[in-house]
């Protein structure tokens, strides 16, 4: 038996909306520690890792580890039916190939029950080691989204260069070139407005912009985004979900022949 209650159905709806273009099917692994999902896009170039800790839920019960394979587009269709302020309760047990989403209005006057068919998904889970990164950049998530969208209109790839003073994003295309340089900015009223650069060694990496633009669909989930880079390694783009977990995106770099 699995049962979990979230104060805001809108949070899960937003999470699924932000990842469903990258991955259409995924298996949620449920256990006493929470709900986790790891899935690669069909080209095996990028990966989504979602972690929702059990202590971030209002109620969380998982008697034993349990896998729930879901079509994320179908899940999104149901989550769209939740009211803005509805609570969400998820229920599933191993006897049925169904997960139930219960949407309850704040005054308890409306209770909607949606049952989603679960599916068997064969997926390859990657073992991603905890690594030290050469450079870690935290910046406002809206700023990162603007940069990748702006550069996406110039070129297909972005070259990211981190030095101790700044982080540069550069793109080139048929119409010309663009470089956006962000300096470290620590003296801000709100911590989420900061741009923080932690650099062990300078890095310079190139990535396909369309994936980064896709990752930035998660902007509404967190005011700040953290980008972790090491030479010739996949980049990690992390959005922290306050009090409950994170969504991380991994993207393999482009490397010169």
């Amino acid at each position: 038996m699995f049962e979990a209650q979230m104060a805001q159905a809108a949070l899960l709806k937003q999470i699924i909306e932000s990842i469903r273009e990258l991955i259409t099917e995924a298996t949620f692994e449920v256990s006493g520690t929470g709900m986790m999902l790891q899935a690669m896009d069909s080209s095996h170039v990028s990966l989504v890792a979602l972690n929702l800790r059990s202590d971030g839920f209002q109620l969380f019960r998982a008697d034993r580890p349990f896998s729930m394979g879901m079509n994320l587009n179908h899940m999104a269709k149901m989550l769209k039916c939740a009211g803005k302020d509805d609570t969400l309760t998820m229920r599933a047990d191993e006897a049925n190939d169904l997960v139930t989403f219960l949407f309850e209005s704040p005054g308890n006057e409306r209770l909607a029950e949606f049952e989603l068919k679960l599916m068997d998904i064969t997926s390859e889970n990657l073992g991603i080691p905890d690594a030290e990164y050469s450079a870690t950049v935290s910046m406002p998530s809206a700023e990162f989204q603007r940069i990748v969208k702006d550069l996406g209109s110039i070129g297909d790839t972005v070259e990211i260069t981190v030095t101790k003073d700044d982080v540069r994003f550069a793109a080139s295309g048929d119409i010309g070139n663009a470089t956006i340089k962000c300096r470290q900015l620590l003296d801000t009223e709100k911590p989420e407005d900061r741009t923080l650069i932690e650099m062990v060694e300078p890095v310079n990496l190139t990535f396909a912009l369309r994936y980064l633009i896709n990752f930035s669909k998660a902007t509404s989930l967190a005011p700040s985004v953290t980008i972790k880079l090491s030479t010739e390694m996949p980049v990690v783009v992390e959005y922290k979900l306050s009090d409950i977990g994170y969504v991380r995106f991994y993207l393999a770099p482009k490397i010169e022949d």
């Binding site: 690669m40 080209s43 095996h44 170039v45 990028s46 990966l47 390859e124 889970n125 990657l126 073992g127 991603i128 080691p129 790839t157 190139t206 396909a208 390694m233 996949p234 991994y250 393999a252 770099p253 482009k254 490397i255 010169e256 022949d257």
Partner: peptide, 14 residues
């Protein structure tokens, strides 16, 4: 031109 690496070039399957 640049090569697009896949994630399996970096991480092993579990």
């Amino acid at each position: 031109s640049r090569n697009q690496w896949g994630l399996m070039d970096f991480y092993g399957c579990l």
